[in-house]
Simulated scan of single mutants.
Amino acid sequence: MSDATRIDARGLRCPWPALRLARALRQQGTPLEILADDPAAEREIRALAEAHGIAVTAFAIDGSPTFRIG
């Protein structure tokens, strides 16, 4: 079981997944996992994390693209 807080942003179009991630980073910090199926989400999530100096790891949960932040 993961110790990360999970954000389900499936079905949301960019920039909403990145905005949800930004809010979670401000409110609780890392580690976070975000599920996001918009094709542009990976680029925006990586850019946001890199701007904060945080590593991103991509994988899948139940077939959904998932990104671990921190």
Rank of each mutant, 00 (worst) to 15 (best):
residue 1 M to Q: 13
residue 3 D to M: 09
residue 3 D to H: 06
residue 4 A to K: 01
residue 4 A to I: 00
residue 5 T to Q: 11
residue 6 R to W: 06
residue 6 R to D: 00
residue 7 I to T: 01
residue 9 A to S: 07
residue 9 A to H: 01
residue 10 R to N: 09
residue 12 L to P: 12
residue 12 L to R: 10
residue 12 L to Q: 15
residue 13 R to H: 14
residue 13 R to M: 12
residue 14 C to Q: 10
residue 18 A to H: 02
residue 21 L to G: 01
residue 22 A to M: 07
residue 22 A to H: 14
residue 22 A to P: 11
residue 22 A to D: 14
residue 23 R to H: 04
residue 23 R to Q: 11
residue 23 R to L: 03
residue 23 R to S: 09
residue 25 L to N: 13
residue 26 R to K: 11
residue 26 R to L: 08
residue 28 Q to H: 04
residue 28 Q to Y: 01
residue 29 G to Y: 09
residue 30 T to Y: 01
residue 30 T to R: 01
residue 31 P to A: 03
residue 31 P to C: 03
residue 34 I to H: 00
residue 35 L to K: 10
residue 35 L to S: 10
residue 36 A to L: 05
residue 36 A to N: 03
residue 36 A to M: 03
residue 36 A to I: 02
residue 37 D to H: 10
residue 38 D to G: 10
residue 38 D to L: 08
residue 38 D to W: 01
residue 38 D to S: 11
residue 41 A to P: 15
residue 41 A to R: 07
residue 42 E to T: 10
residue 43 R to C: 05
residue 43 R to L: 04
residue 43 R to I: 06
residue 47 A to S: 14
residue 47 A to E: 14
residue 47 A to I: 04
residue 48 L to I: 00
residue 48 L to C: 02
residue 50 E to D: 14
residue 52 H to N: 12
residue 53 G to M: 13
residue 53 G to S: 07
residue 54 I to W: 05
residue 54 I to Q: 12
residue 54 I to V: 05
residue 55 A to L: 11
residue 56 V to H: 05
residue 57 T to Q: 15
residue 57 T to C: 14
residue 58 A to P: 11
residue 59 F to D: 06
residue 59 F to Q: 02
residue 60 A to E: 15
residue 61 I to V: 13
residue 61 I to A: 07
residue 62 D to I: 06
residue 63 G to R: 14
residue 64 S to E: 10
residue 66 T to G: 00
residue 66 T to F: 06
residue 67 F to W: 03
residue 67 F to M: 01
residue 68 R to G: 04
residue 68 R to P: 00
residue 69 I to M: 02
residue 70 G to V: 09
residue 70 G to M: 06
